[in-house]
Structure formats: C-alpha cells, structure tokens
Design a protein around this nucleic acid. Structure first.
Lengths: 353, 353
DNA sequence: CGATTCGATCGAATCGATTCGACCCGACGC
DNA sequence: GCGTCGGGTCGAATCGATTCGATCGAATCG
C-alpha cells in the first residue's frame, strides 16, 4: 500500500477498490493515524481554508456594538457555509504594526475588515504583497480592497433631511470618534478635515450637506451609550432657548445615550427634542423606537462573506453598493412650538424647563 | 546566495554578515518576496501559532452574554500576549460533527472550550487523536482536558444559603438550559438527571443542597433577559401566597429578566421578592445592584490562556480551581412579614398584592 | 609559524501530503 | 487472437522553508 493510494482514500478522490480502501483504513486505525496533516495538505494545495477577520481595537469594543455583532454574525454564517474558518485578529489602536507581525506568520486565504476602521492600514500593504484578497465594509480605503459600501454621506443626509422637513432648524450632530484617541467634546473643522475614520467623516459630510456647515457637532470618545450620554450633555445641559431641538447621532447606541441624557435632564423626547440614530439595531431597554437609518448588519456581513468566496475562487471582485433606508420611529417630531408644516416659520420660542 | 542564508536573515537567527543580509534583503525586494511562507514554515517547525476557540451554538448567542464576552476578552488578551491567534469555531448545536469536519482541515496548536457546553463533545476525541492539547472552563468533561474550574455547586450553595439566612423558605430556582433544545418551563427530576450541560446541572445541585429537593425549578430556554423574563412569569404570575419570596437564578441575565417580570407584575424587589444572579456582570440599564456570585470572567479567560501557553510549551497541565465570591446587592432582603432574624420563624403570611 | 577556533556560508535532508504520469492487467470489441 | 480501453495502483516530483553538519577562510593563540 503506497502513500499515494492512502491519500486517494482519505480525500475520496481517485478510483480505489473498496477492498484496498478497507485495508488502508484498517492500517490507519492500527497506526493511530488521525487523517492527513492539515499543514502539509494546505502547503501542497495552496489554500488553508482560513479567512482573517480584522477588528481594530480590542475585541471587547467591537462586541459591545450590536451592529458590529450582526455584521460578524452574517460574515461567520457565510464563511461557515463555504467551509472556511475565521481567524480573529485584534489590531491594537496604538500599535497597528503588531497585527502585521502577527498575520505575517499566519496562513490565510483572504482577509476581511468588516467594521469601521482607519483610512489607511499597514495590513493592506503586507497582505497585498502576499497576494491575499482583501474585503472590507468601509475602511480601509484602498483600490485593491473590495468594499461592500454604504453611502454614508447620502444615508446621513437622508435622515437629516427628515429632521429638517419636520421643521427643525437648530440641529446638532453627534459623531463617532473621528480618530483613534478622540475625546468627548466639540468638533472643529480641522478635526473633520483630519479625520482618519472615513465612515464617521462621511456621515459628518452628509449631515453638513443638509444642516449646513455651521451646525454644532460634538464627538463621542467611544461607540457606547455612556459616551453618547456624556457628549449629549454638552449639547443639552443648558437653557432651552440655547439648546438644539434635534440631535442627529451617527449610531443608535449614541442616540440611546442622547435619549438617556435627555431623560435625566427632564427633556422630553420627542416633544422637546428629536433624536435620530443610525444602524437600526435592537436596544431592548429603550422605551422608544428610534428614528434611524436601517442598515441590516447581518446582510452586510453576508455580502462581505460572498465577496470573500468569490475572491478566493479567483473570480474578479469590486466594490458593491449597500442600500440602507430611513425608518421613522417615535423619537422624531416637529420642534416645540413649531408652526404648522405648511405655514412660514416663526422664531423658535424658549419656554421649556 | 543560498536559501539557507536567506532563511537565517529573515528569522534573524544565525550569524550573518551585515553585507550579506543587505544583499538578501535587496534581492527580496527585487523579487517582491514578502517573507517566508507561513505554511511551509509551520510545517517544518511543527507549530502554527493558532489556537482554536470553540463556541457551542451560534456566535451571536455567545456574544449576547456579557460574561462570555469577558471570558473571551481575557482569553484573547493572554493569547495575544503569547503571539498566538484565535481561530473562532462555532459548533452548531444540532450538528456538532460539522465542527469536527471543519477543524480536521485546520492546523492548530491547541484548542479551548471557554464557555458552558455539552458534557461530551465529539471534538475532544478528534483533537486528542491528533495530540492537540485541550483546555476548558467547565465542559466538556474529559480527563484529557485541563479545566479552569468553578465549583458551580458550592458557589450556588453559597448564594442560596444567603437567601435562606435572610429568612426565606419559599425559594424557587431559575436554571439555564439543561440541554441543547430545552424549552422554557418547569424542570422535573428526570430533566436534572439527564442534563448534558454540567455547569447548569452543578448549579442545580448546589441550589438543592440548601433549598431541598422539593423547591420548584424552572428553566429558561436561553441565556437571555427575555428568556429569564418568560420563565419568571411561571413563578410570579399568581397570587402572592402561592408565589416564592425568592428566586435564585443561575445567571445575572436571567435574574435581570426576573426583575423585569416582577416590575411588570407590580411585585417590588427586594421588598416582595428577593432575586439573585450569578456571574457578576454589568447590566447598566438595571436600576438595582444584583445580589450575585461574582465570577471574574476576564480573569477566568486569562487563566485559560495561561493554561494554553503552558500546554503548548509541553509543560504538564491539569485542572485548576477558580474562586468566586458572594456579592450582596440591593435585590435581596428578608421576605415580606418575616419575623426578626433571631426569633423562631412563624408561618409565612400571604398578605401581598 | 602551525594549530585551533570562530564566523560566515552553503548542501542536502526533512516536514507530510498531493498529484501527474506511468504501469499493469482484465475485459471488451473487432 | 490482437489491440484498446480503463480501472486500480504506485513512483517520484513538488509545495517552501528550516536546520544540521560540512566547508572554507581569517583571525587568534601558543
């Protein structure tokens, strides 16, 4: 019995007499042989069945965001169906090169950047040099990366337009971090110009395209309810006349933080304050239905998974648009003391607590 | 220039003249060589730098539980520090063999079962046959697996004892699923005997050791707030006299569900109902501090990570105990109309709403 | 000045499977 | 009866790096 024949038996490929197959299996049992070594097999065949999934920042972070979870779930589903495993790689914000060193020793068939991330990523250069296909939803921006792309700017313009149409004129924006070490606070034009997270920057642009360049913008230092709460207080903890009547947030988690801040400041939503989000995730403890841009995360993940499959099979891949839609909930309403929609607008009264 | 020398340059091992090293690097640049092929390198060296992390059930599930997240985070931290990557493997509940087929084609240095799982797992047999070291926190139970082991029974006895000491005598238990396809409902002795999730079974045993074998037990079909809420209604949606004065839950998420159910039934916590949990996770939206057994998840994950490192280095590993402690919060109090603690107990009055 | 040692480089074996082409032999067709 | 076809099996090359031992020259030591 030769190794060639044994190989045919285990892979189930070639024509093998059933008697021989049995003899091979018997011998395997006797030698405690647990099947072909995956390493040697992969080396010969040129593929490993593994896809790197890169998460920028600690895993903990990504896993706190239900949208990210949905994306990963959809991605996992599709990769699983294709019989490929996920190699989870966390890329430290303060030392992105670490991930390069780590991945340099790992064999993968493809790499995915499923979540928001840095515009440039040193991993792209390394992986491209190795000829590994790259897929992303958003960042990193690079011609060699195939994207499942939400038009962030248009999507944010959509929801901002909704708020304007309700009659609001004092509208503020709450953005996700624009760069790795952002702190909660007001955002300057320079901050926007030098943003390195394209998703956040795109959404700011979309907001401004409708609300104007003078509308106030604050930034949360993190994509969490707490950070949204803290940032919202900058906007809301002041007399009613000096306060926006609407806050357009870049994420549902941030919007939930705004709602919470408003509650603790005795500002009613939506009567006194309109709040909108982005993503369309479930926030079970929230007593409102957020007005938001619904971006089906699981579907986005699956789309990336399909792109990965195509790329691994050697078929050509390119950017694909990803559609989103506005969902009007119970957190948006006309501003307090607003004139009827069809009438000309009067000055905004300041009669709140 | 020979390949041997080039290898020495890239691995940085052998003594190489700096002039030669430069020539090698120059040649590498000219040939667009991106460093040694990880596959070939691993084949020769016998290790791949990858650790399989097995999650039973869909990833979505595990990621909804803050405790599981903490464990994975601690594990990731430790593996990362050791320069190893995580291969995330989801094992379908309805077809565990799928994961065997998947892992059979993957090269890994070790495998971890970080979360609650099935008593027996076909992966154990396969991985042991390949000589891959195995680490777990809890299930699967197998002599060849090194565990970081919480004494579930003792821990649950601890918190149950606390409830008894407060004066409660009508105590119910809310368990996690005892087997893959459990449904929300009452638990029979047979259910307990035939449980396949050892963590849940161990906790039931601990509860019974203090509360007695006749104390009512319900089971949530899932480890979520919603499932806890649904299961709790079986216990709480009835006249006060016919209702337990305390619910000892097997997880904080379930306990949060109990609190929610109580709220919606106008049962006050802790005045009318004591609720206890398990794990000690943050539930930000909950207005109470749960009385619970604190089990530091991140630390448990790190402990498993360290066990993995030791095992990969070939050092001997065995089971290790993992300590937990009782934390008394604001959800436990003496039962309504309880006699003073030092006085002999009278019959429990049934005078609540 | 000869012997030893050390630094630098190279050859060749090795890790374990896959796969192409060759080979053998029984069956079938003409 | 001879040629052909094809199922079944095997040899040997290949994937790409690592590493042990050998080789060679120069420097050091006695």
């Amino acid at each position: 019995m030769s190794t060639s024949t044994a190989s045919l038996v285990f892979s189930g490929k070639g024509p093998v007499a059933s008697a021989t197959a049995d003899r091979v299996r018997a011998a395997a049992g006797a030698l405690a042989y647990a099947g072909p070594d995956p390493l040697a097999s992969s080396l010969r065949q040129g593929r490993v069945g593994t896809v790197a999934v890169v998460v920028e920042g600690p895993l903990r972070y990504a896993f706190h965001d239900p949208f990210a979870l949905a994306v990963l779930d959809g991605l996992a589903e599709e990769l699983d169906a294709a019989g490929r495993s996920m190699l989870l790689v966390a890329q430290p914000l303060d030392d992105p090169e670490r991930a390069v060193a780590q991945l340099a020793t790992q064999a993968v068939d493809a790499a995915v950047f499923p979540l928001c991330g840095h515009r440039d990523n040193p991993l792209v250069g390394h992986l491209r040099a190795r000829g590994i296909p790259l897929v992303a939803g958003g960042a990193p921006l690079h011609p060699d990366v195939a994207h499942v792309l939400t038009d962030e700017s248009a999507a944010m313009a959509l929801v901002t337009r909704h708020v304007v149409d309700l009659g609001h004129s004092r509208i503020a924006h709450l953005t996700m971090p624009l760069r790795p070490s952002s702190v909660t606070g007001w955002v300057t034009d320079e901050d926007v110009r030098e943003a390195v997270y394209p998703d956040a920057a795109g959404r700011v642009a979309g907001f401004r395209s409708i609300a104007g360049d003078d509308a106030p913008i604050v930034q949360a230092h993190d994509l969490t309810v707490e950070a949204g709460d803290a940032a919202a207080r900058l906007l809301l903890d002041r007399p009613a006349g000096d306060r926006p009547t609407a806050v357009v947030a870049q994420a549902d988690l941030l919007a939930a933080g705004v709602v919470r801040a408003a509650e603790s400041l005795s500002i009613r939503v939506p009567e006194d304050l309109t709040v909108t989000g982005f993503d369309g995730v479930e926030i079970p403890w929230l007593d409102h239905v957020l007005t938001t841009v619904v971006q089906p995360g699981a579907e986005k993940g699956r789309r990336m998974g399909r792109l990965v499959r195509r790329a691994i099979e050697g078929r050509p891949v390119g950017d694909e648009p990803f559609e989103v839609r506005l969902s009007v909930g119970t957190t948006s309403a006309p501003p307090p003391c607003a004139p009827p929609l069809s009438a000309p607008r009067g000055p905004v009264a300041a009669t709140e607590t």
